[in-house]
Amino acid sequence: MSGRASRGRLSRRGLAWVAALGLVTALAAGLVATTSPGRPATARAASVGQAFTVQRAHAGSATPALKGRIVLLTVGSDSGAPRFGRGGSMESGRADALQLVIIDTARRRGAVVSFPRDSYVPIPGHGTSKINAAMAFGGPRLLVATFERLTGLTIDYYALTSFDGLTDIVNKVGGVQVDVDMNLRDHFAGAFLDKGRQTLHGGQALAYARARKTLPGGDFDRSRHQGQLLLGGLGTFQRQVAKDPTRVMAWLAVMRDEVKTDLSFPELLRLALLATAVPPSQIRNIPVPGAAGSAGGASVVRLQPGAYSLFARLRAGKLS
């Protein structure tokens, strides 16, 4: 009897436990029910401590908005390169690689206009001579003046490097991807390259930029290759920065160490940042039309009427 009573008490106590647990469960279930779909998400979130959306997701990016058009003269000097046995200073050498880089900043388009170094043109204060002599006569300033007189364009900045500089730039950035447009076997420049897209190291890039004597188009092919190198450099820069934005600093460090320019550092930075947003496919590589000739016994390139038409179009803001 006492055992049954005891079992009964136990049973009642057990029922009480079950009831208590049921209450807890019911309350908990009730709470869950109040947070089920149908109530405002904000209330649901806050009541269970989950994320409440204060701000929707947004993404944005921007590079500097610079003035309408930038004209940069890039120059490769044949001096100031001790490793290649070229003494003197870069600024007093002959300008053997000459490109006008024109960027329409608003439309993010541009042109690389490549000039044969033997272009026979008026040089202010020095009569008519090969354009590459202008820098030897009066440094980058006279070279810029020569280009301004020839093209009628205002040159905003120049950037100058040497054989050593080009080689170091390319090596320090890890090589430059270029679309080599012909098979090259040029012993004079040391250029031995097969046609096709490839990453060139510094020595190969310099050889590609210098090769002339064995090329069918001679100086014209060479100046086109120099433009391809510039565009290849731009593409390489963009790919690297897209993967790792800190590469902007690496490239700027290389440029600072290897290039002489009248760009101030803030201008250089802004230009580099702008360059991340100008697709190489939107930049035309335009060789200046010319024809082989001679002057005073020296071989020269005489610019053709098409060259002056090109300059007129460029002055009018066109990029072709």
Partner: peptide, 19 residues
Amino acid sequence: LATGDSWRIAAFDSRTGSA
């Protein structure tokens, strides 16, 4: 871009929100 005594943001690529 360093401006002598401080810095300025010259370009950005940014995301915000709860995601």
